[in-house]
Amino acid sequence: MAAPTIDAPAVKVLNRADLTKRLVARLGHDEAVVAGIGNTNFDLYAAGHRPQNFYMLGSMGLACPIALGVALAQPERGVIVLEGDGSILMALGCLATIGMVKPRNLTIVIMDNGIYQITGKQQAATAITADIVAIARGAGIANSHWVRDEAHFDELIARRLDAGGPVLLAARIDDKPGIGQTPRDPSLIRHRFMQGLGTGRVSALDV
């Protein structure tokens, strides 16, 4: 795996499931957590379902746009998106939108293992030449950082709202698969997410 090129001469390779549990343990204000396709949402589910979790089962690349929408709709709520490197490579334009709109309550965590893991570990550009942190900074997300190790992750998460704008954290992770298996029930996922955000319908007569 190529070394990252911005501000992180040495990073520890972490584990997605561990990092996700670590993140979830540090939430305490009903933050919305949007997790992208594949192992990213499996590990969020495995960390323990929360009413404010959204599990994206299809639409690869759209976790950040979904999270942006939630962040704009609920500016007083912290919104965190967990996304893989392969997925964000499909939707790099959204980083420019986020950099331009600058939602201060949005935190992006990119789990970068340099592979399209769930389809057979095909190599992604992030393993060779693409530096997600450099791309994010170039897109206007000035507060973009490589995660050096677990302690650094804790520090970055604790400080994320001090930035006054969107934050992107990129973590190099290993190639272990997700440890959970999110139930594939999209309408239930949406219903529970909206209940968790306080925007759900109470009855079929609500519009």
């Binding site: 959204f54 299809g58 929408g69 709709a73 999209p186 997410f193 925007t199």
Partner: peptide, 30 residues
């Protein structure tokens, strides 16, 4: 889902790029 309602505007060729979003997000998640 966050409580706001929005409209997405695009040209025909923009629509052609969002088939996956329509079929795997908007429709199944209702």
């Amino acid at each position: 889902m966050g409580g706001l309602r929005g409209v997405v505007m695009m040209q025909t060729s923009g629509f052609a790029l969002i088939a996956n979003a329509l079929a795997s997000l908007i429709v199944p998640y209702q």
